[in-house]
Write a protein that binds this DNA or RNA. Structure first.
Lengths: 305, 305
DNA sequence: ATTGATTGTTAGTTTTTAACATACAATTGA
DNA sequence: TCAATTGTATGTTAAAAACTAACAATCAAT
């Protein structure tokens, strides 16, 4: 078997221990004190630091028997090491806390429509399962700054644009062309998207391109349709209300119209032609500590989506 | 000896190796492929991941013989782990690069006065020692946003206010009350700072409180003096020029007036009373890769300060 | 100047950990 | 159903990392 070690740091990358020793050494300022702090013998600290230096052919600190002095590269290395250790602690801490009981107030944000259709039911389950938890939900279609708004969790639907956050995909959704049952006679015999262009279309301005849609048939056939609309609105829920009253056609996410399709008050138009699907993401701020309630809630929401 | 393990992550914190295995497993999606990638046998990957899970009593992934599926906590743990590994690689990479030849253009910023007095000479040495390096110095008294301005290094004098940067102290400075030699007769016989209040004082508005100064005598005696000034300016160099022409007294950093004090064109007023001293910092953006030239320059500058 | 305590390093030994090779059971696609 | 491939379990070997104890270098106090 060919050995292909992709770790660019070389062998030493394997030893987080040495980083801890080095950090302890820096923070105590003495080999003896560092050894005490780590609960090992000072010989080990000396040996491991020496190995660290020899492997990289670098002097991290100058030693006299009475005092140690860090070189600039030693200082710099320390800065990076503490950061790494803190993050490693956090990562393990999260694993550790994960099984502990969630408590406290979960602050989260979600888009209006997805929030109402999916997050609210998840919140119900969440508060039932975890009696010590409260929830504060901020419903906004725009992507709020999590750090600034003091939010622990954001749900994003569609396509991610943010940086400075960690994102995890928690589900997918389809986009469906739907209309009220009243339109059934008009659309029943349609076979291709081209024939739709003249029908009354409601533009959902939450989307970047509310009028241009790419349809793909079950046979991979592609058709671009540019709708014209005399009505546009900036909330998906408002569009749905308009559709229900028979105002026209529009594209809505599946989670938003599932119950109406089941009940038959809305119908799927050209069900054999598919529109681009999107994803649902949980975004998390780069926070040091992540309370158990956050993962607990994501688990519940993921199971629902 | 009492074992006081301060590492909150427990024993597992010591094993960065397991993190690499877990990351490889996640990224390849198979134990066999992960083992190949790491150049070890698949038995090791299986064992180490299992140990990771058992130590934290957490399920990171669900295995079937044909497919593995990560749990939400597994996803979350992966996100943190990749970040940690990238940073560890960078830290070791910096050690590794440190001994390589600096090259490229060093982009840095420094305050006007400190820049001219200290950084410019360091640049001379730097470019002499490293012929492959160029330097672009931005002299600004305000703390520029390193990331935004595409700067690799910032020198900050006084007191740090920034976040989102790494800072290293590279020196100290004293603040000195000085005046032109012409003032010598007037100030020679003064003994306490109180007696200074009526002398003409030039306010350096780079400082937050240019007029209020706390003097401490060699006997730890403390005196607060509130100067009044009819002249204020916002550049330390301009203040010095004004002082040299005998306009009045002011407080200047030691590095700025060393040569004038040596030459006798400026004199130290009440040399037995000390003003608060400050520090010089090198601040670095949180960048992944840090070229060798940066540490090389800091080394030279530190030796100078 | 000498002592004495304390520091960091070194050497030899023991313990712990991780690696390997192999065999095994489970699942899936043909 | 069969063959191939997956992840796991086992016993063994190799390599770290730990300890103890002795050592040389330094500083403070006499």
């Amino acid at each position: 078997m060919l050995k292909t070690n992709n770790q660019s740091g070389g062998e030493s990358l394997n030893n987080l221990r040495r980083l801890s020793y080095f950090v302890a050494l820096y923070e105590t300022g003495s080999f003896t004190a560092a050894a005490d702090k780590m609960g090992i013998s000072k010989a080990v600290v000396s040996q491991q630091i020496a190995r660290l230096e020899s492997e990289f052919q670098t002097t991290l600190l100058l030693r006299t028997t009475r005092r140690i002095q860090f070189t600039p590269i030693g200082e710099s290395f320390y800065q990076r090491c503490t950061k790494i250790l803190k993050e490693a602690e956090d990562a393990f801490g999260e694993l550790h806390r994960y099984n502990s009981t969630p408590e406290g107030t979960l602050n989260l944000t979600a888009p209006l429509d997805f929030g109402i259709d999916r997050v609210v039911p998840a919140i119900k389950l969440f508060t039932e399962r975890y009696p010590l938890c409260k929830v504060n939900l901020v419903l906004e279609d725009c992507a709020l700054d999590l750090a600034k708004e003091n939010l622990e969790l954001g749900i994003r639907v569609g396509w991610l644009k943010e940086h400075n956050v960690q994102a995890r995909k928690i589900g997918d959704f389809k986009q469906l062309l739907v209309a009220s049952k009243a339109f059934e006679p008009k659309v029943q015999e349609l076979t291709t998207p081209e024939q739709l262009a003249h029908l009354p279309f409601i533009a959902n301005t939450v989307l970047k391109q509310p009028l241009d849609w790419r349809f793909v048939s079950q046979f991979e056939e592609e058709q671009l349709v540019a709708f014209e609309s005399r009505i546009s609105m900036d909330k998906t829920l408002a569009v749905k209300t308009a559709l229900l009253s028979g105002t026209g056609l529009s594209v809505l996410p599946d989670y938003s119209v599932k119950s109406e399709l089941d009940a038959g008050t809305l119908i799927s138009v050209l069900p054999n032609w598919h529109l681009p699907s999107g994803h649902v993401y949980a975004v998390l701020p780069y926070a040091r500590f992540r309370p158990a309630r956050i993962n607990a809630f994501i688990d519940i929401l993921t199971a629902q989506v």
